[in-house]
Amino acid sequence: MSFEPKILGILCNWCAYAGGDLAGVSRIQYPPNMRSVRVMCTGRVDPVFLIEAFAKGCDGIWVGG
């Protein structure tokens, strides 16, 4: 079985998360490997979040903002 990375997205409500929604509205297809957490701004992101995710087995993180 091929490697399927487990990706975490931490997305800004006003841009990247909105972009995610627009991709949906436009039915743009992409691989289903990411789960996103919505934040009000990527300034919210504490490095601890990233370390925690990696420590628990996450393969990649997209901080989108």
Binding site: D21, A23, G24, V25, Q29, Y30, P32, S36
Partner: peptide, 28 residues
């Protein structure tokens, strides 16, 4: 849990993977 705009709409042809993702998002 955003299981439409960021899930079923963008993984329309991968039913199992979309269900799995929706399940994760719901659990989160």
């Amino acid at each position: 849990a955003n299981i439409r705009d960021q899930c079923t709409w963008v993984h329309a042809h991968e039913k199992d993977a979309a269900t799995q993702k929706a399940d994760d998002l719901l659990r989160m």
